[in-house]
Amino acid sequence: MLFLVTALDCEARPLISHFELKLSGSHGRAQFFRNANTALVITGTGSTKSAIGTTALGLSEGIQAPSAWINIGICGHADLPVGTALLANKISSDASKEGFYPQCPWDHKWRGCALRTLSEPSFEYEENVAFDMEANGYYQAALRFASSECIHCLKIVSDNKEHPATRKMDKEAISQLVESQLANIEKFSSTILESVVAYKQPPWLDDLLRNAKDILRLTSTESVNLKKALGQWERLSDDLNELAAKELIENQPKKEVFRLLEANIQKLASNRLK
């Protein structure tokens, strides 16, 4: 699942259109949009709002694997040209000493840059760092739902010393800046989602475990052990299906179920380890 986080409606519009997202709900002022594979939240401006919106989106969708999270928005930079897209490699803020380092073992086309999140808009620039107002809150919130390699901030320079920010934003220009990166965003997110290895348990496993808990009168520890053993069996076996697992569990006493499972796992693991 791809999760996109923007502060502004004008940042979100090109993404909503490109990924064909539909309004799917809200949390306070944060608005959610989604399709089958992509979810987006418009959080409002500021680190706190971004953290709230990101958390709300994550909680509404649940932890998903694989997942990629990208905060997309505009930033200021002292000397990089307007339109330059930057992938944050360090995120700090003026409100906290703690810094974050998004890890990126994926190929991408963007320039890396340190990013500092400010609590208030600023019209002053520093060398070698971009400024935004959301990344710090977003990043900390997203860490609840994915690992660092899957959480990124893409910021597009909208102002610099030569073209300083103005109090009134040109929404159309901002949409165009985001639009210019759509192809790269799609490629980058696909790279992450295709590369992240996520073990998916078979859809029947949870039902089977629920039944097993009743039939075999499992303790909590035994339930955990049975889930682990069935998972191992399933990963080692090319042809384990619901029927075979059901037969094993429903027709044997508890002790025998665990013995047979262990024997199967040992045999299959031995066959694989040659």
Binding site: Y101, Q103, P105, W106, L143, S148, V197
Partner: peptide, 18 residues
């Protein structure tokens, strides 16, 4: 600050370590 945070995935990073 870079090496120790918990929300990292060794397997993903092994693809292209920094």
């Amino acid at each position: 600050e870079v090496f120790n945070p918990k929300s990292q995935n060794f397997r993903f990073q092994k693809r292209k370590p920094a």
